[in-house]
Design a protein around this nucleic acid. Structure first.
Lengths: 329, 329
DNA sequence: CTGAAAGCGCTTACAG
DNA sequence: CTGAAAGCGCTTACAG
């Protein structure tokens, strides 16, 4: 691979001068500049960002840790991050934690060993070891999706979004409302959304019957299974709030397979505004979380941190939007 | 940030010795090793992969160029690439070409300036400038999705997959078959799949009526528009082959909105086995391209190249699988 | 078992 | 306008 020394030799100057024209800084005679330019052309020389990074102590690379790569949410978030980063000359080094906290921590270290300038962590939990790893990080970390004390985060407004969902259901006259949630280890999805359900029910003075609250994992089949359980309750719900679209779609699948009509017999609503939600039949009412925007915002927060040098802690709350479609009437 | 020199000083040895214990190579006395280990623990020292890379002339980073980040195909491919790469100690530097050839070329250079060890390019065209950029690359490039002469590629068997689609349609007794394609700049999707349609029709001796062949771009609405055009033909087709699932779903939307029953009035089939295809109503017949596997294969091809040092040109043809569902009966 | 020295490819005061 | 020198954080012959 051709280096700055090769160019210097070819052009008959020192590498200092070559460096000057590459970065056009300082004075260089037209003659030298011309010779250097042609040398670069002829050899196809591309300066090593890597060597430059070592010298300048910044890589222009941001590490992004995702819970899972091939998920709609992730790809939208990354899309947002990438566009914001790119227009500022940064690139993304990608890592997947596969939903394991150990791997989140591992990647936090791995990325630092690569000397990324900063890290965006799309987190799924707030366990102590993870918190420690975040606080010990030597580069700014922006956490997306979980509120980490003492650290910058971009947050979805899970509680109020879920409250909005409940209000929409109540507005249609439903009282008997079932809930499909996930494990409480996930603060945002597992705890906040559930709390909103509980509060909304309490505020409306309706008691939650046995079997109405189910816990699932993040996939469609699990949504179906949970619904099956729920429909064995003595008092059957007339509406179901599933904490994710996929869970909601699983519910729809199970109900339709068992001859129930949606929304006539039972209404469904999810959260996420997935592509899927738009094209299932009936179309699924849901909440848009603006994932791409969240990605952009995370990147921007990180870049601010980088540019100001200060480690300012900022919390940013995302907006959300209820999308009323045909699964809830 | 703490460096190898800090550790050396703390442990009262030379940095050579520290390097030895980090990489456990060569002899080090137990005493020195112990002192070095505690120094590392106490400081939280993490060796700089970056500096190491400069010295070793390899970064253990692979560049991945995608036509678009937030697409189901992309995320599945990246998932495959990532898992294969990760288990070999490599990481992904991500880039998006946003479907523009200029940006494909730009990123090819940008990634090289970062001294990635190799590049996986998910390509959408085979224009000359791109070919040049690929051939001029100083690191191995594996191209996914387009057959590039003189370069390793992982290829989808577009022609035969599309032929299989046509056979499936014929098998149901259809003769009047419409086609929704894309621009020929895309060799794989635009040319190969169309050729299969043309050949299949010719081989069956059925003439293609005016209006049966439509060209769209890669989104759902465009599929609907194309279908609208098609349905204005004098002789209406009884089945439609759309070259992607999204196009097929657009067709379904338009047809259903206009009171037609699928598959009774008109059958539909796509390609891609998207998540969507499974959950629309009726479920969409399609072809699974095993994108994740394609990602794994691309990564493996690249790693082989890297390990053997030789620049062997290998073409790998992906398998495919027809999935018959309810949109075609 | 250990360390001094050279070098990976750059940039940047400093001196001229 | 230009270049020699130092240094970013590592590894690896080489010598002892």
């Amino acid at each position: 691979m051709v280096t700055i020394n090769d160019i210097a030799k070819r052009a008959g100057v020192s590498r200092t001068t070559v460096s000057r024209v590459i970065n056009n800084s300082g004075y260089v005679s037209e003659a030298s500049k011309r010779r250097i330019m042609t040398a670069i052309e002829e050899t196809g020389y591309v300066p090593s960002e890597q060597a430059k990074s070592l010298r300048l102590k910044r890589t222009k690379v941001i590490g992004v840790i995702l819970p899972k790569i091939s998920t709609e949410t992730s790809s939208r978030v990354v899309d947002g991050i990438n566009s914001e980063l790119n227009s500022n000359g940064y690139q993304i080094l990608l890592a997947s934690s596969d939903l394991s906290m150990e791997r989140e921590i591992e990647h936090l270290k791995l990325l630092q060993s690569r000397r990324v300038d900063g890290i965006i962590l799309v987190a799924t939990n707030r366990e102590q070891p993870l918190l420690n790893a975040i606080h010990q990080a030597e580069v700014p970390v922006v956490v997306l999706g979980q509120d980490i004390k003492g650290n910058s985060s971009v947050l979805y407004d899970d509680y109020h979004a879920a409250k909005a969902v409940m209000n929409a259901i109540f507005a249609k006259g439903h009282k008997k409302i079932g809930f499909i949630g996930v494990h409480e280890q996930d603060q945002a999805v597992g705890v906040e959304r559930k709390q909103a359900y509980l509060d909304a029910m309490a505020e409306s003075g309706v008691t939650i019957e046995e079997g109405w609250m189910q816990e699932a994992i993040f996939d469609i089949d699990s949504g179906a299974t949970a619904t099956k359980q729920m429909m064995q309750s003595l008092v059957k719900p007339t509406a179901i709030f599933a904490v994710t679209d996929r869970l909601a779609i699983g519910a729809m699948q199970y109900l339709q397979a068992n001859g129930l009509k949606i929304p006539e017999d039972i209404a469904i609503i999810g959260i996420g505004a997935s592509d899927l939600s738009k094209y299932v039949t009936p179309s699924l009412s849901t909440v848009d979380y603006f994932h791409e925007e969240a990605g952009i915002l995370s990147a921007r927060l990180l870049l601010n941190n980088l540019q100001n040098g200060e480690k300012k802690v900022e919390k940013s709350l995302m907006r959300y939007r209820l999308i009323e479609r045909n699964s809830l009437v």
